[in-house]
């Protein structure tokens, strides 16, 4: 009984400890942001490895998500004779939910895990300590560019995902299923609004997701136990925690934006 209580207390204390360390780490990152202005090349390299490298999976996934939305939407709408609203269904669901959420989930799996593994191995091979020995702050040199690159890349990837998804839905709905092209676009344009759907949906949501995923990824890497098992566990935690954080945050943001 005492053992159970001790275990419970230890577990909750370690949760709070990690939570506190995570937020202090975020503070360190934010304080180090200014260093990036002097060395913008570091950022370019990271945008390449975080953003450009994720482009292929985002484009392919976006196309198929858009196509399957059109297919499913068509099958449902045709029973009401309302298949002309297919454009609205595809565009609204992509802009408000699927675009930012699926892009962020893919981003967490593709880029977040890579960030954690990279920083974790730098720690395991004592590269971070070596930097400190040379009076180079590893947070400013290694962590900040990766964090900012994630925040920059995420909205761009979400926008690409959504745009490609709408085009995929157009290909499937208009090209394969024979929905009227004029109705597809005009209904979409009549119902989709810039502020509610494009700015709130794609931009704000994906910025928030990019922030959370990058934060979790760099923190888990920096906080990893410096062994092979430690890095592997940290990488797993990054994917699991970011995915859960994305879905939970999405619910909150949706509640705030579209109530």
């Amino acid at each position: 009984m005492t053992g159970l209580l001790v275990g419970l207390g230890r577990a909750s204390l370690s949760v709070f400890e990690r939570l506190g360390r995570g937020h202090l780490f975020l503070l360190r990152i934010l304080l180090g942001l200014a260093a990036l202005v002097r060395r913008p090349r570091l950022l370019v390299v990271q945008v390449w490895s975080v953003g450009v490298q994720s482009l292929l999976i985002i484009v392919v996934a976006g196309t198929f998500v858009g196509m399957v939305l059109a297919l499913q939407g068509y099958n449902t709408l045709i029973t009401f004779g309302a298949e002309q609203s297919l454009g609205v269904v595809v565009a609204k669901s992509l802009l408000r939910e699927l675009g930012p959420v699926i892009a962020a989930l893919l981003f967490a799996g593709r880029a977040g895990s890579a960030l954690t593994a990279e920083i974790g191995f730098m720690k395991a091979t004592e590269q971070l300590s070596a930097m400190e020995m040379m009076a180079v702050d590893p947070v400013r040199r290694i962590v900040v560019p990766r964090f900012v690159a994630g925040i920059i890349s995420m909205p761009l990837l979400a926008a690409i995902f959504t745009a490609v998804g709408v085009l995929g839905g157009h290909f499937c709905g208009v090209g394969l299923l024979g929905v009227d092209e004029g109705a597809f676009w005009s209904q979409m344009q009549a119902k989709v609004t810039l502020l509610d759907d494009v700015v709130n949906g794609v931009m704000i949501k994906s910025l928030a997701f990019g922030f959370v995923v990058s934060w979790i990824a760099v923190f888990e890497g920096y906080d990893a136990v410096p062994t092979s098992e430690g890095v592997s566990a940290a990488t797993t935690r990054t994917v699991v925690h970011s995915s859960l954080a994305i879905l939970a945050l999405d619910f909150i943001l949706t509640g705030l934006m579209f109530n």
Partner: peptide
Amino acid sequence: MEISVGAFVAIGLAALLLLALKVANLAQ
């Protein structure tokens, strides 16, 4: 690498523009 990063940012902004103009029909 720099060119591909520039192209990536340009494609992202173009996608955003497409969403704003073609999907949300900002022109109207």
